[in-house]
Design a binder for these strands. Structure first.
Lengths: 224, 224
DNA sequence: CGTACGTTCCAGAGAATGTTGGAATGATGG
DNA sequence: CCATCATTCCAACATTCTCTGGAACGTACG
């Protein structure tokens, strides 16, 4: 009777390591974070992450081999997107462990993000309910391209830098919910702060678009 | 207005990478898997993973720095255990992505594990209900030391290799549920197969002890 | 059909990681 | 207080990873 199965088990562990390895580099994490916003070309991603195109390409291919992203050709460009919703869950799991365990991150997160969390966030559930009842104005404060690549149905795109001069578009007597890229994106925080300063009843979505998508909630995506 | 916060965001990504880096090595994944069964000393872990003590010690310290495990001294020994339940979730998230994405793992998993999955597994929920109603015999087929370090309340420890000659301890007219280390452990599979061959109504828990613990279910642990 | 563009492949330098063996540290027990 | 045991620290080497620049590839467009 084969009590143990050391050999295949080892092989499985090695494959775990391949996936983890893919996230074992700050630049790749950043690339994944951007890819999670929607399909992106290589040089777009390179620019966003501050890398050379060659370097970004290499990182992206490593991510592809690890099964975290997939690529498709569109004309002369190659577009990368997340391979699966699970990848967002994976990132969130890493985030939870990183937030708790690593001493340094704690300070960073505390001072830059959680301090602003007094702006009570809105849960997916609550937002879905309010959208259904039509009692809330939802704004997507990410840049136009990211909104175009995919957003929550019913959302209005008002990039953060345009917010001050487009306040007129917002009804003053309705609650406003803002969202952006995710838990490490400050856009929604800033938007809420701006809106509150102007007297609006504004709150932010607990996390961002990728998490909404990963949760299986409806989204508007560009047709492939 | 600071629209972006590139600098702290980068720092956060780097910390993500530190956590991922910790899992970016097959030996460390294996060590974590063993640690997830309960507290273990360094040389115990070294033996289980087939490493030298020195090497295992280094890996474990890296895991500790990344916040995945914690160590405490007990006499001359240093015992390592998981830092948090979240770590189990993290491993499961990596597992899901690894299973789907990497071509090779698929074959391995298919042939060695999932093929046997026809032995319909029992969910946490279902097991908890049945235990409460007292209509099931629960057996822990891991080695004695692992059982001693922590197990599900009400479970009887019958290590797999002792099962054939201890069948007499099991009531023939009650359903039996077997569990072991987790989704990549074959002990429970083998136990169920053995029991069924002898005419018992046997099933296995969907995953193992670490996942039960991570889900916040009650466990019996050795007092510190 | 040739040019332009985006991406990938390739080779090399520099940095980081993994493993090993020996020495040092901490704690226990006579 | 010395001897012993478990673990950690340290130094060295082989291996792997990361980034850069140039060349090659594939696709679209004039």
């Amino acid at each position: 009777m084969a009590v143990s199965s050391a050999s295949p088990k080892r092989a499985v562990f090695v494959q775990f390591a391949v996936v983890a390895q893919a996230l074992a580099n700050g630049h790749r994490v950043e690339l994944i974070e951007h890819v999670a916003q929607g399909e992106r070309s290589v040089d777009e991603l390179a620019r966003l992450a501050g890398l050379t195109v060659t370097n970004a390409s290499q990182h992206l291919q490593l991510l592809r081999r690890a099964g975290l992203v997939v690529a498709r050709r569109a004309g002369k460009q190659v577009l990368y997107r997340l391979a699966d919703r699970d990848v967002v869950d994976l990132l969130m799991a890493v985030r939870r462990t990183a937030e708790r365990g690593v001493a340094e991150i704690d300070k960073i997160v505390q001072s830059y993000f959680h301090a602003r969390d007094s702006l009570e966030p809105v849960s997916h559930e609550e937002l879905a309910d309010r959208l259904r009842d039509g009692v809330v104005t939802l704004i997507d404060v990410r840049p136009g391209e990211e909104f175009a690549a995919g957003h929550i149905p019913g959302a209005v795109n008002i990039p953060l830098d345009e917010l001050p001069r487009r306040l007129g578009e917002l009804p003053a007597d309705r609650a406003i919910v803002a969202y952006c890229r995710g838990p490490y994106c400050v856009f929604a925080f800033e938007a809420v702060a701006t809106l509150r300063a102007k007297g609006y009843e504004a709150r932010r979505l607990a996390d961002g678009y990728p998490q909404w998508w990963a949760a299986g909630r409806p989204v508007v995506e560009v047709a492939a």
